[in-house]
Design a protein around this nucleic acid. Structure first.
Lengths: 203, 203
DNA sequence: GTCTATAGGCAGATAGAC
DNA sequence: GTCTATCTGCCTATAGAC
């Protein structure tokens, strides 16, 4: 499957994934068709079936790649020589970047359509959120230890709160096509977790 | 259209709206069809077109009714003899009730599918969020005045944060089919706004 | 108001040539 | 790997009888 480089520097399978990913993030899994992807790549629908047996298999591959990339970004943040509060900021920036491309988080979109998805896709969506929460929990524990973060309750609950709030901020901000809307919510969220917020109410 | 009461105590248009509303909240606007509604009501697809010209018109009617009902619930809360903090709890309970029925907020679902919706539906979704935020802003201002709530920044920003966090908590909780997940997030959210949480600092 | 019948199009998918 | 051709089924929607 990974032969010589092509004109656009990507093999067909990758180009399919790129187009389908964008379509799902903008229109949803039930809002796009093989015909949409085929038109964008200027190949036929039949060719798509050579690379991905069906829409369900394409969907699985989409989540898997998305989760892998996201996980790599998290590892990069995790190994950076910055404090936990800065890591949270970097985490929020991952979301902001998606929103700036006028897209919804892939798995946030699929969470909305969850009940219409094939089982393997459902399981993959759950895994994505579990991994995010586990990573955040570790960062929160680190921040509590080093004193850069302060929060009540369990780190696990706080991690879930962060994922929920950021996914929700993306969801609601998108109709307004206003990235600043997301930004304001993210900053307010982290301000309530920053240890410095326990000193002064302003920022 | 509003003739005598029928066996189930509702006219056909209402029964259509009820079935379609549930379908959209569970499967999304692009995840259901006239055939689904017709099957549930045991009438034909053609009959649906007598009551609602097309899917777009049905969708508009769905949001309008949903927003009206939600607005009435907000008015009820607003006129209750309780403090602002309690009003926020009552507001969160509206969301929790939807989630307990294994549904997503209608407009939260439509926000995900926003880019695939006809213009009139898009405008109606925006109006729903605007009305929610305006109501919340008033409650927050009241709470700040009476001392039951404390928060940094503008009441408007805080209101947006609340809507985002609750919508996101619904979105992420639904795949886990775990209402407690939503509850924990809502409680943590309001804890950060309660004046009692301002132990030492904050104004 | 509800029905039967049907139009016209698009969905996901497959067979087989090249 | 990509194509043409085709299948089957579902989609929204309409015409017209009752």
């Amino acid at each position: 499957m990974a032969g010589k480089r092509q004109q656009k520097g990507q093999d067909t399978a990758t180009r399919i994934l790129d187009a389908a990913e964008r379509l799902v993030q903008v229109r949803g899994f039930n809002g796009f068709s093989y015909a949409d992807v085929a038109a964008e790549l200027e190949i036929t629908k039949a060719s798509l079936h050579y690379h991905f047996a069906g829409k369900a298999e394409l969907g699985e591959a989409l989540i898997e790649r998305y989760a892998t990339r996201f996980g790599e970004a998290l590892t990069q943040i995790e190994t950076s020589p910055i404090d936990a509060a800065a890591k949270l900021d970097a985490y929020a920036k991952l979301y902001a970047d998606v929103l700036r491309a006028k897209r919804m988080c892939l798995c946030g979109m699929l969470a909305a359509e969850y009940r219409t998805l094939p089982k393997p896709m459902q399981n993959a969506v759950i895994r994505f959120f579990d991994e995010n929460e586990a990573w955040l929990e570790a960062v929160l524990v680190q921040g509590q230890g080093e004193g850069s973060l302060a929060f009540a309750g369990s780190a696990s609950d706080a991690a879930r709160m962060i994922v929920s709030a950021l996914e929700g901020a993306m969801l609601v901000s998108r109709p307004y096509a206003d990235p600043a809307r997301f930004q304001a919510t993210a900053e307010r969220l982290f301000a309530s977790l920053s240890s410095s917020s326990a000193l002064a109410p302003s920022r």
